[in-house]
Nucleic acid binder design. Structure first.
Lengths: 178, 178
DNA sequence: CTTGAAGTGAACAAATCTGTCTACCACTAT
DNA sequence: ATAGTGGTAGACAGATTTGTTCACTTCAAG
């Protein structure tokens, strides 16, 4: 990806997370990134495509980060699934925590057929698969349970600002898993 | 509340839920409700105030509905807390399920200081209190756990369209409670 | 009968939104 | 050298946004 295009996506992603998708105008993204409008529309056909590109990038980044955490935990002899909640905890207590891009996106694009909503659903599904891969085959149905705990923790942390939401979820995960 | 004002709030609430808050223009609310713009601004100082009024109404309605379900369950000798998940299940499988107004609102108004975000937080907190009132005093801290399961189920049902999300949450609630 | 409250309809302002287009610049590989 | 690529600056269009204002109507209560 060309550096200007990359910078555009990075800036857009940050602004979408801070202010929401509809509330973030294209002019603000351009001003903040220092990219010209013509360049934007050379790389993307519309604002929606920019949103999709930003979310796809975020999707890959999150999946990568979680995979790394899981691998590290397993090498240390710990539970890969529980490591996810430690990662959540770090996220919730970082300065940049403003909720999950995908939950927020499917809130704004409520129509299940909308490409942005569908991408959000795919992201959540991909995380479920990551969890499932950590479970013994006869516990596969627990993946949805763990995924539900993850999303519940995210909402709790975001809407009410409960910083230790990840540990509340983790406690329940332990009961479910063992 | 005057009937026209009431009708305005009802229409607005439905549209906000369907299309989101920023995406729903005031002109659409007016056209769909048949109310004139001057009337809107006689009753509300701004669109944000209309949003707040709609959410406050929804807040009271939801609390009332949950309380009723809990009372009915208790009279039948069942768990009041578990009855919440049955109510969720009905909601998820109704035609009008488009996610939780308050989760969606705090997604669009991400700033924790924004009145709309704060109202959403208050709503979620009020539900936690309702749950807490159903728990024995030494289990009070389980209210946040149950609340997390509720929100997790809502997200699961909305973003991925998992219709039985309420029962997945209910299964975990049973383990937590007993 | 008249006053006041509630509502209508429409025009209007002012800002903001996405998207298009033109003319131009800088660099790099052939 | 020259063609192609990627980028800039900025004007512009056209639609849409929230919010204001004015003249008029309807109707019930004192």
């Amino acid at each position: 990806m060309q550096p200007r295009k990359q910078h555009l996506v990075d800036t857009a992603l940050a602004l979408f997370n801070q202010q929401g998708y509809h509330a973030t105008g294209i002019d603000l993204i351009l001003a903040q990134s220092g990219v010209s409008k013509a360049t934007l529309y050379k790389h993307f056909r519309s604002k929606d495509e920019l949103i999709l590109a930003a979310l796809e990038q975020r999707h890959l980044h999150v999946l990568n980060a979680i995979s790394t955490k899981i691998d590290r935990a397993i090498k240390a002899g710990d539970s890969g699934v529980l490591a996810i909640f430690d990662a959540l905890n770090e996220w919730f207590n970082s300065e940049q925590f403003l909720g999950c891009n995908f939950i927020n996106a499917s809130a704004e694009y409520g129509d299940a057929q909308h490409p942005i909503h569908r991408l959000s659903a795919q992201h959540k599904q991909a995380i479920i698969e990551l969890i499932r891969a950590q479970l013994p085959p006869n516990d596969a149905e627990k993946a949805d349970q763990i995924g539900l705990l993850v999303d519940g923790a995210i909402v709790m942390a975001h809407t009410r600002g409960i910083k230790n939401a990840a540990f509340i979820a983790k406690d329940m995960a332990k009961i479910i898993l063992f």
